[in-house]
Design a protein around this nucleic acid. Structure first.
Ligand SMILES: [Zn+2]
Ligand SMILES: [Zn+2]
Ligand SMILES: [Zn+2]
Ligand SMILES: [Zn+2]
Lengths: 165, 165
DNA sequence: CTATCTAACGTTATATCATAACAGTCAACA
DNA sequence: TGTTGACTGTTATGATATAACGTTAGATAG
């Protein structure tokens, strides 16, 4: 149920358990130390908030929680922390939802793809390394030097697919 | 230079020539007639505006042009026309840019992928039917019923890759 | 131990993107 | 010819994101 190895394609939806949260947070801290970036209190708390969330969170939702806990109350506070997390591989931005989600395997370099449920808005991160490689090659065939890709799929998660419309 | 067949992967960047514009517009009109949707003046003009543009256009850019030509002056005018075009396969939305681009082959059913140049903001539409199929299968392996995907790649177009930074 | 520097944080103000809600128009048609 | 429904337009507002600037606090050089 909980295979985060890079070849596994899409993985499970449930990343909100406390065990996962703690483990992922620990990985993130290790990686931050190794790469010399500072996982400051706001940044760390923002990552925790994302990890505790069931789906992706909008910047203003994150801001609400942060300001309720005594951090800054204005949008840049949330956007700065979130952008830091995204730029350093601790979180991903979900374009379709204008929202952010914690990376489920921040310890390794990877290309991600996302499965977004139309019904319950759950977001599942999967590994898109092979898709990305194929796209880099297809793009290069027309002279385009591909740097990074956004892959977001919309449909029904397994939980919602079972239920009636 | 101008192969729009569905197997060709990414195709050329230059779709702004008058010949292309006219041909694509004609295809769109044919398809609209066939599928019983109404390509009204605002909608048709909006599609022309997208076709004439070199890259993707934001809704407010489209609105500027429309209102300068005597159409409505308020955002819903542009958003309604653009949403109509997207829903009916005449245009695509580029999530990363909050912008819209005319579909280069509105005559056929297809899954699109986009190559977005970081430097000049050009947008190239390519065919992603095979990627999409592969993703549907990968998603189905974890019980996700995939409906549609957004695939957007960022990098340097062939024109910009040659130039100095 | 100070002076200086800089990354990070916080604020105010504003820009940018998008939609809700409702009124007028007009062609289709019972 | 009255009704209907799709379309276009408006006003008003909501949602997302950033620019610009002052403050704080840890790091480093003197
Ligand atoms: Zn990730
Ligand atoms: Zn679901
Ligand atoms: Zn297309
Ligand atoms: Zn370019």
């Amino acid at each position: 149920m909980t295979d985060h190895s890079p070849q596994s394609g899409f993985c499970c939806t449930d990343h909100s358990g406390a065990a996962h949260t703690a483990a992922i947070l620990a990985q993130a801290e290790t990686r931050a130390r190794e790469s010399g970036v500072r996982l400051t209190p706001v940044r760390r708390r923002t990552l925790e908030i994302l990890l505790e969330a069931h789906g992706a969170l909008g910047a203003y939702e994150v801001l609400e929680r942060l300001s309720a806990e005594g951090y800054g109350t204005q949008p840049p506070v949330a956007y700065r922390a979130l952008n830091f997390l995204v730029e350093n591989g601790f979180a991903h931005r979900i374009q379709r939802l204008n929202a952010f989600t914690a990376c489920v395997h921040p310890a390794r370099d990877h290309r991600a793809a996302f499965l977004i449920c139309d019904r319950c808005n759950s977001v599942t991160e999967g590994c898109a390394d092979s898709f990305s490689q194929a796209m880099i090659e297809a793009a290069s065939a027309v002279g385009f030097q591909l740097e990074r890709s956004t892959i977001e799929a919309v449909g029904l998660c397994s939980a919602c697919a079972g239920k009636p419309a």
